[in-house]
Design a protein around this nucleic acid. Structure first.
Length: 553
RNA sequence: AGCGAGGUAGGGUAGCCUGGAGUGCCCGCCGGGCUCAUAACCCGGAGAUCGGUGGUUCAAAUCCACCCCUCGCUACCA
């Protein structure tokens, strides 16, 4: 037998280090990536889960300027906070790194030089506004002036907030610097480097045709539509200080554009993780599975593959690109850029990670935008997670305890196993197709089967508070055998979604690293000490805490 | 404006690619059952002209055209 060399790299879009992500950001890429990674572990596969903080770019540089700290300091402090909060949410990263690292710099330079050597880099000239006071070029968002269409005073270089027209910086009347508000602005010529995606279009097209069958619908369709319009060279350098300096004569005062070093960050972060990174990124049989929000599609379906192909360095190309829609929160304060409202940190102050993970995945915006409301959250936690699953586990274990029987004496009950086995198969199929919300619903359906079986079996006629009633022993053993193995199964299948509760349940079964193969093993002794419900409903206090985040109307 | 994604019972979703009785699921509602369990659980029922209008077809939620509404991308935001 050949050793199985198949490997999987799972990535989530890198969260931007400007501010703490909110729950919509979380469910849009990191959470599904983590859930999938945990499933791969359940299935016993060789996979790594790579993520990290995206640290460069204008917004961070500007915010740092305003706060009077260095960009690096700001980016690193937000990075530390994010890393901590993701860990508190039980994210199972193989490595969580950051883009402003030595290893990523190395990766960026190596890839840039390869692209350059292969003839995919060219110089492009453009005219940009320059502030003589701040001594810097101004991006479209940071130059303001009077709107030429409606006369609004605070129009920005990209758009007028008053009339909504799209603008160019040159359109503004009496432009001034958005940072220092002085009018000492001049338009200067500047030269940047661009990657010639137009040259790479044929290869990118082949790649897309071959792979898009496995992508989410939005990613596939959007990409086709972009490719039909034709790709154009895309700039990869910027006039700013915060970032990796461009290693080329005449460009020393420029840095790589954030999108360029962010996608390469997947590799750079892996390099920081371990020497083994090559076995994955250059392995003969690696699947790269990437999760992201819909706003990130074009970077991952065209620009990123273009970079990889153009480098000629033999990196694996994305196998699956799965883009989520948005989880919105119309009735809640839920804003990352404004820095207010329900973010990941204060969410954990209200309730534990299992509850958020379960509810978010149950409501995950797989095919269209979904609105997250307190009512929906409460419904999922109280009715689905607690009443169906949590209550099932607890009633079965209580029955077992009351029966006084040993788990090793129990007999598999045939009645319910067919349906449960079918649902378990569907659970696995859903995961293979990345339909994780469906997979979670199979878990709920298994609880339904368990609850139905209890009702129809009427175990209270067999088992009293202090043991099995006379003559009911055989039936009790058979019944409990079926029910207890469903509890174990739910503990295992719950692992990707609600890891804390899963561990709590599986600990009783002596399982610490759950695998799907555990489901086939015979039942061993159970530890029933300190039996208590695995979940609880949201309390009035928790609801009050949540309502603090409702939009004042 | 162009492009992408949605519009299915009171709310939320699946089905659409590969037409075939509105077929399904969750919550809510109405009625019944049970009491092992966290007032939890189980069974039954009501409730939808599948966004609109035309078209193709023996047959359309599903395919085609046009229109309306929501969200997103097209912005030197990532």
């Amino acid at each position: 037998m050949q050793q199985n060399t198949k490997k999987t790299i799972i990535t989530s879009a890198l969260p931007y280090s400007e501010a703490m992500p909110h729950l919509g950001n979380f469910v849009g890429s990191i959470l599904p990536a983590d859930v999938f990674h945990r499933y791969e572990e359940l299935a016993g596969r060789d996979s790594i889960f790579i993520c990290g903080s995206d640290q460069h770019g204008t917004p961070i540089e500007i915010r740092a300027l305003k706060e009077g700290v260095s960009a690096e300091h700001l980016a690193d402090s937000v990075h530390e906070r994010m890393k901590k909060v993701f860990e508190s949410f039980e994210c199972s990263f193989t490595h969580y790194g950051k883009t402003n690292s030595e290893s990523n710099k190395k990766a960026v330079y190596e890839i840039f030089e390869a692209l350059d050597k292969n003839g995919y880099i060219k110089e492009v000239e453009s005219v940009m506004p320059y502030c003589n006071i701040d001594k810097r070029f101004l991006t479209d968002r940071y130059i303001e002036g009077k709107c030429p269409y409606c006369g609004f005073e605070g129009a920005r270089g990209d758009q007028c907030d008053n009339c909504g027209r799209l603008l160019s910086p040159q359109d503004l009347i009496d432009p001034y610097c958005g940072l220092c508000h002085n009018k000492d602005i001049e338009f200067k010529k500047t030269v940047n480097l661009a990657i010639e995606l137009d040259k790479l279009q044929p290869e990118i097209l082949d790649f897309v045709k071959m792979r898009m069958g496995a992508w989410s619908r939005n990613a596939a369709n959007k990409t086709v539509s972009y490719l039909e319009q034709g790709l154009e060279p895309r700039e990869i350098t910027r006039e700013m200080k915060w970032g990796f300096p461009v290693p080329r004569k005449g460009f020393e005062d420029k840095v790589f554009y954030v999108w360029f070093d962010a996608v390469i960050g997947y590799i750079g972060i892996s390099m920081e993780w371990s020497e083994k990174w090559k076995d994955y990124w250059k392995g003969p049989d690696t699947e790269l599975i990437q999760f992201m929000g819909k706003d990130n599609i074009e970077f991952h379906t065209m620009m990123w593959p273009g970079i990889l192909i153009g480098s000629g360095l033999g990196f694996v190309l994305p196998h699956t690109i799965y883009a989520y829609e948005y989880l919105t929160a119309k009735g809640l304060k839920f804003s990352k850029s404004r820095g207010v409202g329900l973010n990941m940190e204060n969410a954990l102050e209200i309730t534990g990670p299992d509850y958020w993970r379960f509810a978010l995945m149950y409501l995950a915006p797989e095919s269209s935008d979904n609105d997250f409301t307190i009512a929906l959250f409460v419904e999922v936690v109280n009715k689905i997670m607690n009443d169906k699953i949590g209550n099932y586990v607890h009633r079965v274990l209580t029955l077992l305890k009351n029966s006084g029987l040993k788990a090793s004496e129990l007999v598999e009950d045939e009645k319910s196993t067919d349906k449960v086995a079918m649902l378990t198969r569907k659970y696995a199929e859903d995961f293979e197709a990345l339909k994780m919300r469906e997979a979670l619903r199979e878990l709920v359906a298994i609880a339904d089967v368990g609850n139905e079986t209890i009702s129809s079996s009427r175990p209270w006629e067999l088992i009293g508070k202090d043991g099995v009633k006379l003559g009911g022993e055989d039936r009790a053993k058979e019944f409990l055998g079926g029910m207890v193995s469903i509890v174990r199964r739910m503990g295992v299948l719950m692992w990707p979604f609600a890891p804390d509760a899963s561990s709590k349940i599986l600990k009783r079964f002596g399982i610490s690293e759950p695998r799907l193969s555990d489901l086939k093993k015979p039942l061993k002794e159970l530890n029933l000490e300190g039996l208590e419900p695995v979940f609880s409903k949201l309390s009035d206090k928790q609801l009050k805490d949540l309502e603090r985040f409702e939009e004042d109307s």
